[in-house]
Design a binder for these strands. Structure first.
Length: 518
DNA sequence: CGGACAAGCTGA
DNA sequence: CAGCTTGTCCGG
């Protein structure tokens, strides 16, 4: 069993006492079951990762003290192991993500393990796995896609936000579908016979059968976990899980990422519908302006005509811009920042990009400093800027309504803006694809960012290891001004397999695979 | 991770 | 040299 001790990634062997060995529901213990065991006399939870292991000699086995409940299925343990390989993570982290937040009691009807395990452990079959991306304008309903997926059987459906996930689960149930929310209804999901809806970590939901996986708004940054040492992406986990299960992976997005477009069939709406589903874009070309400042005449004009407007500015300068705007409009301006919300009922609101998620309805979103977004020092800056416009477009509604997007810029012909103006995200993805191919950035390369106190020392070790392993086709770059090194390879197999051979990683060194910024 | 124990530092 | 900090090791 693998103890839930971060920084300890080794399975330990225990004996199961007779008293715990039997259970009315069948086998008491299966792969993934959560047990309590003593580690150095301390009670610790952990996951069963092997049953009847070959006991190592000269070790006195301690008994398991408690059965805590069911855990991730063998299939999920396997995909979690894959995630550990792919992002160089620790098993306990991913197993914990895949487990119920609060242990499910052992009692209750539970059928014996189904064919899940056989399915999971047989990985190498010729696959008819297909992935499909539905490019849907921001205001288009996704329900038709969701419904078609629900009709096929027990689907696994991911949303970027909890609110949307639970709303959809409720709606689906009203429409007569068996549909549960993960992780709240963890046990029902594990029993099978229903579709499962959740956010990022629901990609590790235990389900006896999965008919297909659907990722709604695949471009959302919410699918990319970058918290502390854990870096992983739910879309990539879903892709691998679908491939292993040999079921279709489906995605929706108004602004598909290059990652999603890779090896995927794109299904588009009729041009007319897609055009209709984007909001009207008004561009204020700042180069044409005679006086400097944050407020173009198009902006004042649009703000005066709006019944409710949100202005987006950069983090520094929200309150100053707010004062200026209030003076200009001669009315109070509400403020929304990451920390606080003030005067939310005002007709005009100002805030950073997070404000888009705090407002439920408006008919104008104005980006006052759009070029700042485009120029963020990250290789995904433009992609993120386009995603924000899609998000804003969804907020203000389709062309048929009165909703508008206003962008102040000195680059009115930027591919991001042309994509929105023409309701054609392909304009941007072609541009971005070319750029990333030229610069060898993801998804056209696999990269590992190495940071931390002892990074320099560690990279020296990596370099010498690379010289020894003559086959590895990996570049080492760095350091940059921030003391960051980057490993780059043409594919993840090469990169991750190489990293797997490095057993000793200093405590302070952090390796993030395909981070959002380099 | 967190405890156990060893080795190093300090102050009387 | 006790008493405290910091480091290293290890778990079945």
């Amino acid at each position: 069993m693998l103890p839930y001790i971060l920084g300890f990634d080794k399975a330990l062997d225990y004996v199961l006492p007779e008293a715990l060995a039997r259970s009315p529901a069948g086998r008491a213990l299966e792969l993934g079951s959560v047990v309590q065991v003593p580690v150095r006399g301390r009670p610790v939870h952990g996951w069963v990762v092997e049953i009847d292991p070959e006991p190592e000699p000269d070790i006195v086995l301690q008994p398991v003290t408690k059965l805590m409940g069911i855990g991730p299925s063998a299939e999920v343990l396997d995909i979690a192991d894959w995630a550990c390989w792919r992002w160089r993570g620790r098993r306990a982290r991913f197993y914990n993500l895949a487990s119920p937040p609060r242990q499910v009691p052992r009692e209750g009807p539970r059928e014996g393990p189904r064919q899940v395990q056989d399915l999971a452990r047989s990985q190498s079959h010729t696959s008819s796995f297909a992935s499909e991306l539905f490019r849907l304008a921001p205001s288009s309903r996704i329900w038709p896609v969701v419904a078609s997926v629900l009709k096929e059987g027990s689907a696994l459906i991911l949303f970027p936000e909890e609110v949307r996930a639970s709303k959809l689960a409720r709606y689906a149930r009203r429409q007569g579908f068996q549909c549960v929310l993960w992780p709240e209804q963890w046990e029902r999901a594990a029993q099978g016979g229903c579709s499962v809806v959740g956010t990022r970590s629901a990609v590790f939901a235990t389900m006896p059968e999965v008919s297909s996986i659907l990722i709604v708004d695949e471009h959302s940054e919410a699918y990319h976990e970058t918290w502390q040492s854990v870096t992983w992406h739910a879309r990539e986990v879903a892709r691998e899980r679908a491939r292993r299960l040999d079921v279709p992976l489906r995605m929706t997005s108004p602004v598909p990422t290059l990652e999603a477009l890779k090896d995927t069939e794109v299904v588009t709406q009729p041009r007319k519908s897609e055009r209709e589903g984007w909001a009207e874009l008004v561009i204020a070309d700042l180069r044409e302006r005679d006086h400097p400042g944050l407020f173009s005449h198009q902006l004042t004009e649009q703000l005066q005509g709006a019944s409710r407007a949100v202005c987006i500015v950069k983090r520094t300068g929200v309150s100053e811009a707010r004062q200026q705007l209030a003076r200009l409009l001669r009315e109070p301006v509400g403020m929304i920042t990451a920390r606080e919300t003030e005067a939310e009922t005002a007709r005009v609101l100002i805030g950073t990009t997070v404000a888009l998620r705090r407002v439920d309805r408006c008919d104008l979103v104005a980006f006052l400093e759009f070029d700042m977004l485009l120029a963020s020092p990250h290789y995904r800056a433009e992609e993120v800027a386009l995603a924000l416009l899609a998000e804003a477009s969804r907020l203000v509604g389709a062309k048929s309504g009165s909703g508008r997007l206003l962008v102040q810029t000195r680059q009115p012909d930027h591919p991001v803006l042309r994509s929105v103006a023409e309701a054609n995200p392909e304009i941007f993805s072609k541009h971005d694809s070319q750029l990333r191919q030229d610069l060898l950035l993801p998804p056209f390369a696999a990269v590992a960012k190495i940071t931390g106190e002892e990074a320099e020392e560690f990279v020296k070790v990596l370099r010498s290891e690379l010289r020894n392993a003559d086959a590895a086709d990996i570049d080492v770059m760095g350091p940059d001004q921030e003391g960051t090194w980057v490993l780059r390879s043409g594919n993840h197999e090469t990169l991750c397999n190489f990293l797997l051979t490095i057993s000793e990683i200093p405590e302070s060194v952090r390796i993030s695979i395909d981070p959002p910024s380099l």
